[in-house]
Design a protein around this nucleic acid. Structure first.
Ligand SMILES: [Mn+2]
Ligand SMILES: [Mn+2]
Ligand SMILES: [Zn+2]
Ligand SMILES: [Zn+2]
Lengths: 154, 154
DNA sequence: CACCCTAGCGCAAGACGTTGCAATAGCGCA
DNA sequence: TGCGCTATTGCAACGTCTTGCGCTAGGGTG
């Protein structure tokens, strides 16, 4: 029991960043509502990328009365807390990264539709190039670069 | 009268890439319609960047019956001919480059809303980084990177 | 445990594109 | 000049977000 807190029943429950959300919100004068709980419950079971549209659908599975505008607004709040981060996929559609470990940009092949995460070193090269150019501080997590992947170039 | 063709009246009319559009379209089995003429007339008097929405408004000034879908479709056609090129500005809104001299990406400061063109060398650095990484062929003209400009970083 | 302040909710409308469809009209050809 | 094929048009509906507004309900306080 080195790092994780043991729990009475003997099971191991990994401390999740989601566990403290309600308290964190209240501590900022924000509120913990059933709608927000629904979305957080949905997010709990997601790793990686999800579109906003899919999140709305998942919420509606749990609560038929889910409203898009509420979900979008809650996602904004959670993004302020760093719990999710959004970028834009093909067509500009919003794409959320749940519990982003490290910020990264994306590549999108217009020919085959595949997407990749930009590797850290490559991302750093981009950030550095623009910092050197105009002292611009790139928000890598919001970057989606389109083009053609190696396979589609033939 | 070295480069430009002289013209009978003695005035100098710079040869415009727009002059041959009708013929180029027909040569490809496409058609030259009043609606397309209206848009091209509008584009003639634009250099640099314009949003699709603004182009639609300008067309409607000349022809009240202008329809958005037609304008969008014509822009697609003109893009295939390389006469315009689009990227995405703040909010993902479409932004057209009229008669793009050289492809370039854009920077957008989320704090002050300003935008810049990415300089050729810097753009090349980005293209090279991704080519080296995954053999990805970046469409630089479609790249808009957001972040904070030097001034807004304080 | 009521009370009150205000954050958040649902709803309706709007902005920006995209797409399917039936009617229209370029334009190449005879 | 007149015909006929099919590229385009206009429309209506849809998808994804965003925003303003009046009503509801968290939750800190006494
Ligand atoms: Mn965004
Ligand atoms: Mn685009
Ligand atoms: Zn591909
Ligand atoms: Zn700025």
């Amino acid at each position: 029991m080195p790092q994780a807190a043991s729990n009475p029943a003997g099971g191991v429950a990994a401390a999740s960043p989601w566990d403290g959300v309600a308290e964190r919100l209240r501590a900022s004068g924000l509120r913990w509502t059933p709608q927000r709980r629904t979305l957080v419950d949905v997010l709990r079971e997601h790793e990686g990328h999800v579109t906003a549209t899919e999140l709305i659908a998942r919420c509606r599975e749990r609560d038929q009365t889910t409203t898009p505008s509420t979900v979008y607004r809650t996602l904004d709040v959670l993004e302020d807390f760093g719990l999710v981060r959004h970028g834009h996929g093909p067509g500009g559609r919003e794409e959320y990264h749940v519990l982003p470990d490290q910020v990264h940009g994306h590549l999108y092949c217009v020919a085959c539709g595949a997407t990749w995460e930009i590797r850290p070193e490559t991302g750093a090269a981009i950030v550095d190039a623009l910092a050197a150019d105009l002292g611009f501080d790139v928000d890598l997590s919001h970057v989606t670069i389109s083009g053609r992947c190696q396979t589609c170039r033939d």
